[in-house]
Computed example of a mutant assay.
Amino acid sequence: MLRMLPFLIVLALWIWAFIDCLTTPEEEVRHLPKVVWVIIILLFGEVLLGPIAWLVAGKQRAVRGPRQTPWAAGDTGNGGYERPRGRQLAPDDDPEFLASLKKDNKQHEDMLKQWEADLRRREEELRGKDDPDAGRRG
């Protein structure tokens, strides 16, 4: 088993570099086109030259800077939502959230009533087409 360890390490690095190259966006690939990097990794993977070249020169690595907070000063945060101020309320206690739920529920109820009325109208139309004598009796 110990004799297979170097082979397994080479195989794992080869597979990892290949998948990493395939999933890397084109704009993050350096020096050569992405297709050329895939070919290099596949052709020279057995001797580790391809995967090591990809790790060293093929992909732009993110430069780690200071960790940023989710909302920088003056920024509204993700998706345009306002930055939470003060004590944050749970959704159950937030009156604005509860009011929006009531408004949505009212809209959904109105929509459901409209659909039900439309369904009743369509059913009556179909009944009238199926039974031609129904219009003469009434």
Rank of each mutant, 00 (worst) to 15 (best):
G86D: 08
K102Q: 12
G128S: 15
L101Y: 05
V56E: 01
R121T: 14
D75R: 05
R83G: 00
L98S: 00
A134M: 09
I19V: 13
N78A: 11
I15D: 06
L8Y: 06
Q114I: 04
P6D: 00
G45F: 07
A12P: 01
I40Y: 03
K103W: 08
G65C: 11
Q114T: 09
L112K: 05
E82H: 09
D92V: 02
P91F: 06
D75K: 06
E27P: 03
W16C: 07
E124D: 12
D20F: 02
P51E: 04
V63F: 09
I19S: 03
L43V: 15
G138R: 13
P95Q: 10
T69Y: 08
L2S: 12
A53P: 05
A90Q: 13
E116C: 01
V47L: 14
P6T: 00
G138P: 02
A17I: 06
A99R: 13
L101F: 04
D104F: 11
K103D: 05
I9Y: 03
R136L: 15
R3V: 10
A73H: 13
V56T: 12
A72P: 03
Q68M: 07
K59A: 05
L49D: 04
P91M: 07
P84E: 11
T24R: 01
L48C: 14
V47K: 09
I40C: 14
V36I: 15
Y81C: 09
M4K: 06
P70G: 03
L126R: 08
G45W: 05
H31V: 14
P70H: 07
I39S: 07
H108W: 10
R30T: 14
A17Q: 09
P66M: 12
L112Q: 03
L119H: 07
L13G: 12
S100N: 13
R3G: 03
G80T: 02
P33A: 03
F44H: 06
V10L: 02
Q60H: 12
D130S: 06
G86A: 10
L119C: 13
D110K: 12
D118I: 01
F18W: 09
I19L: 11
I40K: 03
Y81I: 10
E123Q: 15
A17K: 08
L126I: 06
M4T: 07
A73M: 09
A17W: 08
R136E: 13
V35H: 04
P84R: 03
E124H: 09
A17Y: 06
G86R: 13
L112S: 02
V47N: 15
W16H: 10
P95N: 08
G128N: 13
A17L: 07
L101Q: 14
L112Y: 01
A53R: 01
V38T: 11
L42Y: 05
P66W: 14
